[in-house]
Design a protein around this nucleic acid. Structure first.
Length: 518
RNA sequence: GCGCCCGUAGCUCAACGGAUAGAGCGUCUGGCUUCGAACCAGUAGGCUGGAGGUUCGAGUCCUCCCGGGCGCGCCA
C-alpha cells in the first residue's frame, strides 16, 4: 500500500530531523486532488509541540522525504497553507501498481496474512416465529458484509445465528396456531400472520423447523450463509445456563429476592439488578444469553462481535456486566448497534405488526427488486443511521438503482476486453508510460487506494465505504471511457483490466454479482 | 422523566477532527453512422436543526435547547 510507503518514509524523516515526540498524526488519501494524492498533518501537530512554525517545519520534513525517496515513489512533495505536506505519486509507482493488480487478481485488496484473531460474528438471530422482515434484511446484509470484510483483512472468522427456540414466544406461536384453528382472535402478544395456517397440525418442533427453514432459504437467496446455527435449547439441555449462574453466584454476584435469583449488575454500572432465575424457577432469556456468550469464549474465540437492533440496546449494559462478572475479557466483546428500518409506501409509513401480520417480508422485497439490489440498498448506508426504505421507489426505479451503475461499468469493461481479444497475458511487454491522460491518472490512483479502503472499512465496520468506493471507481471509469479510446491501445487495455479486477473484487466483497453482460 | 442513536441540497444518503461539505434521484442544457447512451459533459440547488464552547482547524468533540427514532419487564 502506498500509505505504508509514506508512513515509513515519514518516520525516517522525522527521526533524522530529531523529532521524537509521539504524535497522533495522520496520512490520508487526499480529498484535494489538485494538491496531491496523499496528505499528512504531521507538521501541524509537531509544530505546536515544538513551538515552531508549522509551514517551515513542513518544508523541512518535505525536503527530507524527497532526499530519502530513493525508489522514486513521489513525483512531488510540497507543502500547503496551515502546514500540510502533500504527496504526489510518480507515474512509475502507478504503473507498478497496475502490474500488481494483474498479478494478485482475486487477492487484490485482501491481506495475505492471517491475524490469528479467532473471531465469532453473530447476527440476525431472529426469533423462529415467522418470516424475516425488512429489518432483518439489514442485519443480514450488514453482518455478512462485515464478515467478508474481516476475512479480507485476515481475521479468522466464524459466523453464527442464535436460534431462540425456547421461551414465551414459542408457546405464543403454538397458542396462536391453536386460536386460529378454533376461530378465535390472535392471543395477546401472539402472531397473526398468514403463515400461521401453514404450520397448523405440526408439533412445536416441526413448526420451528419449518419457519427456520424459511428464514434460511430467504438468507440463501441473499447469499448470506452462517457457519453455525446455534439453538438456545442446547444451552438448557447441556446445563450451560446452570453453570454460568453458578459461576456468578460463586463470585458473590447474585442474591435472592422475592423468590427470584438476581444478578448484581448495578455493581457494574447498570441501572438496576437483573433477574436470572424467575420466581417460577425458569431461567430468563438474559441468563441463557449470558451462558451463550460465555460459551462463545469457552469455544476458543478470542473476539466476539454481535450485531443488534437498537431495540435491544438497553440490553448491552447488563450482558457486558455479566460477562465482566464472569471474568471474560469484555474489551474483546463488541456489540454493533444498528438503527431500525422504516418502511414506506410512497409517503405512507408501513406499520409492521406481528399481531395483525401486516408486514412486508424480506422475501417479498427480494422478489420485487432482486437480491443484488437488496444487498446494495442495505450495504450503502451507515447502520448507525435510520433507514427510510420506500417500496414504491425501490420497485419503480429499480433500473436506476446504483447497483446497476457498478454492474454496468463491469459489463462494459468485460465487453471491451473481450472485443480486444486480450487474454490473461502478462503486462510486461506493454509500454505503460503512454498512460499520461489526466483521466487515466485519476483512475490509476483510485485503483491504487483499494486495499486501504478495505482496511478502513473493516476497521470501522463500515461496509458502506465499499459501496461508496465502488460508485467512485465506476464513475471514474465511465468518464475515462468517454475521453480515451481503448481498443488498439495496449496500455489502456491493461488499465481497463486492472479496473475490471478491482471492480469485480468490490462487488465480491459486497456479495453482489459481477455480470459480464447485462 | 432517564439512557442510546439520528437531524447535511427538493428527496435518499456520503464525508475515520483537516484544506473549497460530496454523490445519486428529481430540475434545466447539450452529447450515440465510431470500443455497451443502464453512459458522459455542463447547470441549478446548502448559515450541515438552533445557541454557546474546545481547537491552528468542527458537519464531526463538549454543554444546553428544538425535532424524530428506539429502549427503560421475573418478555425475547
Amino acid at each position: 500500500m502506498a500509505k505504508n510507503n509514506i508512513d515509513s518514509l515519514l518516520e525516517k524523516s522525522l527521526l533524522s530531523l530529531g523529532i521524537k515526540e509521539k504524535l497522533a498524526y495522520r496520512v490520508d488519501i487526499s480529498k484535494r486532488k489538485d494538491l496531491g494524492d496523499y496528505a499528512t498533518n504531521v507538521a501541524i501537530l509537531a509544530a505546536s509541540k515544538l513551538s515552531q512554525k508549522p509551514l517551515e517545519l513542513a518544508s523541512k520534513i518535505a525536503k527530507k522525504i524527497v532526499t530519502l525517496d530513493s525508489e522514486g515513489i513521489f513525483s512531488k512533495v510540497d507543502v500547503a497553507k496551515p502546514g500540510f505536506i502533500n504527496f504526489t505519486l510518480s507515474p512509475s509507482y502507478l504503473f507498478q501498481t497496475l502490474s500488481n493488480i494483474h498479478d494478485q487478481d482475486h487477492a487484490w485488496g485482501r491481506k495475505k496474512q492471517k491475524t490469528g484473531e479467532k473471531t465469532l460474528l453473530e447476527f440476525v438471530s431472529a426469533n423462529p416465529t415467522g418470516p424475516l422482515h425488512v429489518g432483518h434484511g439489514r442485519w443480514a446484509v450488514i453482518g455478512d458484509n462485515i464478515g467478508r470484510l474481516l476475512k479480507a483483512v485476515g481475521v479468522e472468522l466464524d459466523t453464527e445465528f442464535y436460534i431462540n427456540d425456547v421461551g414465551r414466544q414459542v408457546n405464543l406461536l403454538e397458542a396462536s396456531v391453536r386460536a386460529k384453528r378454533e376461530g378465535q382472535g390472535v392471543p395477546i402478544d401472539g402472531y397473526g400472520g398468514s403463515y400461521i395456517v401453514e404450520i397448523e397440525g405440526k408439533t412445536q418442533k416441526e413448526m420451528l423447523d419449518y419457519l427456520l427453514n424459511q428464514q434460511r432459504q430467504t438468507l440463501d437467496r441473499l447469499g448470506v450463509k452462517f457457519d453455525k446455527w446455534f439453538p438456545e435449547s442446547t444451552l438448557h439441555d447441556g446445563k450451560k445456563i446452570k453453570e454460568a449462574i453458578l459461576k456468578l453466584s460463586n463470585s458473590g454476584l447474585t442474591y435472592k429476592k422475592d423468590g427470584a435469583l438476581w444478578f448484581k449488575s448495578i455493581e457494574f454500572g447498570d441501572d438496576k439488578d437483573r433477574v436470572l432465575i424467575r420466581e417460577d424457577k425458569n431461567s430468563t432469556y438474559f441468563a441463557a444469553d449470558v451462558a451463550y456468550h460465555l460459551d462463545k469464549f469457552d469455544r476458543g474465540y478470542r473476539y466476539l462481535i454481535d450485531i443488534w437492533g437498537t431495540d435491544h440496546h438497553g440490553y448491552v449494559k447488563r450482558l457486558k456486566s455479566a460477562m465482566k462478572g464472569l471474568g471474560t475479557p469484555v474489551e474483546n466483546f463488541e456489540i454493533i448497534i444498528g438503527q431500525l428500518v422504516t418502511l414506506y409506501r410512497g409517503s405512507e409509513p408501513v406499520r409492521m405488526s406481528k399481531r395483525t401480520g401486516e408486514m412486508v417480508t424480506l422475501e417479498e422485497v427480494i422478489d420485487e427488486i432482486g437480491a443484488d439490489a437488496t444487498r446494495f440498498f442495505f450495504s450503502a448506508t451507515d447502520v448507525n443511521s435510520h433507514l427510510d426504505f420506500d417500496l414504491e421507489l425501490a420497485k419503480k426505479k429499480s433500473s436506476d438503482n446504483p447497483v446497476y451503475y457498478l454492474q454496468y461499468a463491469h459489463a462494459r469493461m468485460c465487453s471491451i476486453l473481450k472485443k480486444s481479444a486480450r487474454g490473461p497475458t502478462s503486462n510486461e511487454q506493454v509500454d505503460l508510460t503512454k498512460l499520461d491522460h489526466p483521466a487515466e491518472r485519476e483512475l490509476m490512483v483510485k485503483l491504487l487506494v483499494w486495499p486501504e479502503v478495505v482496511d478502513q472499512a473493516a476497521r470501522l465496520r463500515h461496509p458502506h465505504r465499499i459501496t461508496e468506493y465502488g460508485k467512485e471507481l465506476a464513475a471514474l471509469f465511465h468518464s475515462f471511457y468517454e475521453k480515451c479510446k481503448v481498443l488498439g491501445n495496449p496500455a489502456r487495455l491493461v488499465l481497463v483490466d486492472a479496473s475490471r479486477i478491482t471492480l469485480r473484487n468490490v462487488l465480491e466483497l459486497l456479495g453482489i454479482s459481477a455480470p459480464e453482460r447485462m
